[in-house]
């Protein structure tokens, strides 16, 4: 079942065409990733999706409801984690969550009950009385996610949630999101420029210049836009050259590009002595991104 349907979405800021007629579907319970460089149109799309930004044209439907006609219902169904913390930094975690809960009509005992659940899930008890501005990056991110979930939304939108976080905190945030998805069946809509995050998604849409340039499951994308790679160890470069395939020198071996697994198999069968220490892997999302956009993605900026 499609929980999000977007058709022919357009948005411009003056002469800048941020989103140019994109259409896609998100299935209920899936981890959906929007992959693109800064300025590709990711944040603009989710700002429209969560009812914060006016669209120029197109149709946005969440849970079968049109955004233009059911803005309030849709806002209740969506939780958003922004790129940077949008909570009130001078106020305590408790005050922030209490205020935001009240905006959804959750007050009194209902709030305390929900706070307990979130506090257990995100280990917030030690920081509840501390001002948000005094928390570490990782603690603040956990509070951001808790705020997004305060009203038990069906869809969690994460706008580059791990940007700027250290690897350990990134892993911890990601662990929480995975738990929510698996245990609660929550739909997660992620925008990212981290390939490893997109590779974990059920479905990926690659945006470039406000347009969708590729979409599919990570496997479909890899199959469609990259071949396989054979990494050979302990061989002379001349023998790799003799294969007649494009290759790349690695610190301890050579990475040979082949069209697909079948071609890799035929190469191995043709010269089994060469393939004594080797591995075959699918192309990475980086390769897919490079193939469809002609750009390398490093930290959200073009290389």
């Amino acid at each position: 079942m499609d929980i999000i349907k977007i058709d022919d979405l357009y948005k411009s800021y003056g002469d800048v065409k941020a989103v140019q007629g994109i259409s896609f579907r998100v299935k209920k319970g899936e981890l959906f990733a929007f992959l693109g460089l800064n300025g590709a149109g990711k944040s603009t799309t989710i700002s429209i999706l969560c009812g914060r930004l006016e669209k120029d044209a197109g149709r946005v439907e969440l849970n079968g409801k049109d955004l233009d006609e059911n803005g309030e219902d849709i806002k209740r169904a969506v939780g958003v984690v922004f790129q940077s913390c949008a909570l009130d930094k001078p106020l305590s975690v408790y005050d922030n969550l209490k205020c935001r809960a009240a905006l959804y009509g959750i007050t009194g005992e209902a709030f305390e009950k929900r706070l307990k659940e979130l506090s257990d899930l995100f280990e917030l008890a030690p920081v509840l009385k501390r001002p948000v501005g005094k928390l570490s990056g990782g603690q603040r991110r956990r509070v951001d996610v808790a705020r997004a979930l305060i009203h038990e939304p069906e869809i969690l939108i994460l706008d580059e949630p791990t940007t700027g976080l250290d690897p350990q905190t990134r892993k911890s945030v990601w662990g929480i999101v995975e738990t929510l998805r698996k245990e609660k069946g929550m739909t997660v809509f992620l925008t990212t420029h981290y390939m490893e995050e997109a590779a974990e998604a059920d479905y990926v849409v690659i945006l470039d210049g406000g347009k969708i340039v590729a979409e599919g499951t990570p496997l479909q994308l890899k199959n469609a836009y990259t071949g396989d790679f054979i990494t050979l160890y302990n061989v002379a470069e001349e023998r790799v050259q003799a294969l007649g395939k494009p290759y790349e020198k690695l610190p301890e071996g050579y990475r040979v590009a082949v069209a697909d697994t079948a071609e890799a198999t035929s190469l191995i069968l043709a010269d089994p002595e060469l393939f004594t220490d080797y591995e075959i892997v699918k192309g990475k999302m980086d390769d897919v991104f490079l193939a469809v956009t002609g750009k390398k993605l490093t930290g959200g900026t073009e290389k």
Binding site: C50, G51, G71, D73, V80, F82, A86, L87, R100, L103
Partner: peptide, 13 residues
């Protein structure tokens, strides 16, 4: 200026 308004505007207020 600090983006808090975004957090308020995404709620059904």
């Amino acid at each position: 200026a600090n983006g808090s308004i975004n957090d308020l505007r995404i709620s059904p207020v």
